[in-house]
Design a protein around this nucleic acid. Structure first.
Lengths: 96, 96
DNA sequence: GTAAACAAGTTTATGATATAAACCATATTT
DNA sequence: AAATATGGTTTATATCATAAACTTGTTTAC
């Protein structure tokens, strides 16, 4: 009877989920910070941030901090909703 | 701070997770039953059951029910442990 | 009694994904 | 002026997920 809901494939990936989890509780976070927290490689993080952006789950703003490039990410309303839905769906799989 | 643990790649897939979830709460279940409950195609289910078996998370017994082939699956102790560990790991991603 | 349809799976082929490794541009240090 | 560091992006490959086709045998319809 569990009626397994579809798990959003964008969120059902560990690095993207970790990023979303981090972004859910802050105003915004920089690439370097996300990289440290998730222990991801820069390449992988770069790609997964792109996918989250393509999905409309995060916003990415690029500017310069002095002379250094800076990539700042923040979760969107749509991203928050998707994350909540994902958690709900997961609950039907596990008994949480 | 969250310290994102590795998510067991065998369990971090919806059909396999659904199967494990179903098997966790029953003595055993047949292929056909799992197929109905998960709404998976037979081919996909066949392959994912193999992978769960390869991982040592389930046992598969094949026999005949009258004249029909029957495939019966049950979770192993190792599978139960892995599922618990997976759920724990997920909790560090989401705040459950 | 044989052709067609059904049941229970398995195998194959391909398209999508994840990730490491290589690369680029600029800045700083030696 | 090399070498190293910073902040990323691009590319190449190996793995994975899944649909579609196939297999083996059984039941039903003609």
């Amino acid at each position: 009877m569990a009626d397994f809901k579809e798990l959003d494939p964008v969120l059902h990936q560990s690095l993207r989920l970790a990023v979303m989890s981090l972004l859910a509780s802050v105003e915004s976070a920089e690439f370097v910070y996300l990289k440290e927290q998730t222990k991801a490689t820069a390449g992988n993080l770069s790609i997964q941030l792109d996918r989250l952006k393509e999905a409309g789950y995060i916003q990415i703003v690029k500017d310069f901090n002095g002379k250094k490039p800076r990539t700042t990410c923040s979760i969107t309303a749509s991203g928050k909703n998707a994350l909540e839905a994902y958690v709900d769906a997961l609950k039907t799989y596990l008994n949480l």
